[in-house]
């Protein structure tokens, strides 16, 4: 992509707010490489102690599912209610289950 050469590519930024939590997507930024992207992520997205760990990844490297496939991808799970504990009836007097 010739455009890529002229402009700084886009990176997506993920922050772990504190130990014990997963990294969460917060937005994007521009940088020439991952090293610079990390520094930019620090300066742009963690000015108020928002995190203890950062991930950056080139936006171009993310493969996303297509909303048109949402039915095929996610609908089939809908009627499999036996995967949830509430599906099973256990008498109230039975404890610790």
């Amino acid at each position: 992509m010739s455009d890529e050469r002229q402009h700084w590519p886009l990176f997506e930024v993920f922050i772990r707010a504190r130990a014990g939590l997963e990294h969460k997507h917060v937005g994007s930024l521009h940088a020439v490489d991952a090293k610079m992207a990390l520094e930019h992520a620090r300066d742009v997205y963690t000015r108020r102690m928002e995190g203890v760990s950062l991930w950056v990844v080139r936006s171009a490297d993310i493969t996303a599912s297509d909303p048109d496939d949402a039915d095929a991808f996610f609908e089939p799970a809908k009627d499999k209610i036996y995967r949830h504990p509430t599906f099973y009836e256990i008498p109230d007097e039975v404890k610790n289950i």
Partner: peptide, 23 residues
């Protein structure tokens, strides 16, 4: 003023999800 730059960055980032580049 730095925050304003940051807010510009968040907003450009949101607009970029619509298929227009920052440039």
């Amino acid at each position: 003023v730095q925050d304003e730059g940051g807010h510009g960055a968040y907003l450009y980032s949101a607009a970029e999800t619509l298929g227009i580049s920052r440039e």
